[in-house]
Amino acid sequence: MSLAQHVAVITSDEQALIVASDLAEDFKRDSALRDRERRLPHPELEAFTRSGLWGISVPKEYGGAGVSNVTLAKVIALIAEADASLGQIPQNHFYALEVLRVNGSEPQKQRLYAEVLAGRRFGNALAELGTKTAHDRTTRLSRDSSGQGYRIDGRKFYATGAIYAQRIPTSVVDEHGVQQLAFVPAEAQGLSVIDDWSGFGQRTTGSGSVLFENVAVDEADVVPFQSAFERPTPVGPLAQILHAAIDTGIARAAYEDALRFVRTKTRPWIDSGNDQATQDPLTLKSFGHLSIRLHATEALLERAGEFLDRAQAETNADTVAAASIAVAEVRALSTEISLATGSTLFELAGSQATLAEHGLDRHWRNARVHTLHDPVRWKYHAVGNYYLNQQNPPLRGTI
């Protein structure tokens, strides 16, 4: 949980995309090895942080680049294409920054945004196991007996990024039953980050447990949370577009690996009548099908970013609903194409592609695990209800 030194400050969308492209080339190199050995990407995260990319959503008035959501989604997709886990690790960091933008006080924004620009990473401790629904929370925020500040008690899971973070934004329920977001320092006494993530995909995200045992937190580090979903805000669609970007990056990675393998290693099927696999007409049809859906997903991702930019610039029920639906559309398609490319890769590349040394199974595993985040079938329901019945989607955000 070291603090990255000599952190660059990115000043434009163009610079952010150039930096992300360069980093992605480096991250791609040992991606399969990190997955195979479950080697947590500490050096890569230090480089990622020093690049300045973790601060690109900080608003310009606080010293950041304030990049568009089109750019933010492209950055995440580029990193996820290189390494799906590295693409997911900052997802809740950017989510917390949006909660801060929407609900934080001026002093909180000045202090916490400055920390990010200095190289501090925010993780998350939001979800819990064993609750009635995925939205229920039991982790408690109670007044300290001294009357100064608060104490936190509870246990979290799916805490992506917490193991790498300097602060862990934590959803807590106060004495009035209202959810707050506490930006807890990772070194706080009584806080334990447990590396017990055993998912078969996204293996190096560190999405394990965080335990809070009478953990002290300053009042100044507690930001209103529940109210971000009691009125129209862009918080929910911001979280969702990042998930879509991760899946889009996974799909692109699997697609590019399929192209490379078929071009260089795959043998043609005997009944095709061709000497090269690249001339097999049924293979060409399959690649055409994948290409069209992947390009459609990438276009929808950009479109969703534009809708989200409008919702941030002029926030009301209509703009937030339109952004949520645009994001739901790309979430639906990115789920399907990431799974399809990860599976079809083997159909087109052949048995050689299943050999462990290639590590190509990680694409499907990563897609299968990450796309389980929230059910895509409800995206179709929300989209259909919006267009047919003019019903806005729920304000609650699924992160």
Rank of each mutant, 00 (worst) to 15 (best):
S291A: 12
K265E: 13
I246T: 15
V223N: 04
V173I: 09
A20W: 01
P43W: 10
S142H: 09
H370I: 01
A20R: 01
T344I: 14
H381A: 09
P281V: 14
A254H: 03
L17H: 00
E44C: 02
S171R: 11
A296C: 02
Y380E: 09
P232S: 08
S324Y: 04
P375M: 01
G236S: 14
E187N: 14
V223G: 06
A118P: 01
V7H: 04
I163N: 05
T170N: 06
P237L: 07
V9F: 01
V173K: 04
D218L: 13
V383S: 00
D280R: 06
Y255A: 01
F261M: 06
G104R: 01
A16T: 09
Y113W: 07
Q240I: 04
L301V: 02
Y150N: 06
A322M: 07
A340V: 03
T11F: 01
A356Y: 04
F229N: 04
V330N: 05
R203K: 15
P41K: 00
T248S: 15
G104I: 00
L355R: 12
A96W: 05
F212C: 11
R39F: 12
P394A: 03
V215W: 12
G123N: 05
R377W: 05
E175N: 04
A127C: 01
F48D: 08
Y150F: 15
S272R: 00
Y158W: 13
A32W: 03
N392K: 11
A322P: 01
F229C: 04
R203F: 12
R155Y: 06
Q108M: 04
Q179Y: 02
R121H: 11
A326G: 07
L242I: 15
A323G: 03
P90Y: 08
G201A: 11
A326I: 04
E115L: 13
S324D: 02
S192Y: 09
A114W: 00
F94W: 15
A162Y: 09
L72V: 12
L17C: 01
S85R: 00
L301Q: 06
I292L: 15
R120E: 12
I250S: 07
E219M: 00
L388P: 00
R368D: 13
D153P: 03
G119K: 02
A32Q: 08
T131K: 10
A317H: 09
L355Q: 13
E329L: 06
S334Q: 08
A182K: 08
D318Q: 11
I292T: 14
T319F: 09
R365P: 00
L372N: 11
L301I: 00
F287V: 11
T371E: 10
F122K: 02
F200A: 12
V369F: 10
S207C: 11
H6T: 08
T283M: 12
T71A: 13
L238F: 15
Q108C: 02
H370S: 07
